[in-house]
């Protein structure tokens, strides 16, 4: 296999970065294996679970379905760059059990609150329907979002 390497520049959590990676690597692979930033989790690599959610130009996307080539010149925010008040709300409301899905949920929540600063329960459910959690039954996740929004 002839591995191809290219250089890509983008903004990661507010900082400009340059990274050499195969152009068809996903953003998830680049974050975890090249940059070694592992807060973004790999649950299925198929866009089915939401654990790898990041913000691309402010919108929630699957980093496992985003090529590093898609990211060139854009802005990426991972869990490491999200408003800590959301992280704190998840922790204090007991929404964290095994915790593997939570970074993705935290990022999805950041996108949700950007669109709906005071979301209804319906809006929370609609916006987080792509983030699977196997531990919590989602009850405390809804509470965490509401706590982060101050509703």
């Amino acid at each position: 296999m002839g591995v191809i390497l290219r250089e890509f520049s983008f903004k990661l959590n507010g900082q400009p970065v340059s990274v050499k990676a195969p152009p068809a690597y996903t953003l998830l692979e680049t974050l975890r294996y090249v940059i070694r930033l592992t807060g973004t989790k790999d649950g299925c690599s198929s866009g089915d679970c939401g654990a790898c959610t990041v913000l691309l130009d402010g919108r929630a996307v699957h980093s496992c379905l985003t090529l590093i080539s898609h990211v060139q010149g854009r802005e990426v925010v991972t869990v490491e760059g999200v408003d800590p008040k959301i992280v704190k709300a998840y922790a204090s409301e007991g929404a964290v059990q095994c915790g593997y899905c939570i970074p993705g949920l935290v990022v999805a929540t950041a996108a949700l609150l950007r669109e709906h600063p005071k979301p209804s329960t319906e809006e929370v459910r609609e916006m987080l329907k792509g983030n699977l959690c196997r531990c919590t039954g989602y009850v405390k996740i809804v509470k965490a979002v509401e706590a982060a929004a101050g509703v």
């Binding site: 807060g39 989790k41 704190k88 915790g99």
Partner: peptide, 22 residues
């Protein structure tokens, strides 16, 4: 009812799970 001691680190993505170790 005390928030779990591991919650903050997990939610912020800092916890290293086995799959995060390289």
């Amino acid at each position: 009812e005390i928030a779990r001691r591991d919650a903050l680190e997990k939610a912020s993505g800092k916890t290293k799970f086995a799959s995060d170790m390289v």
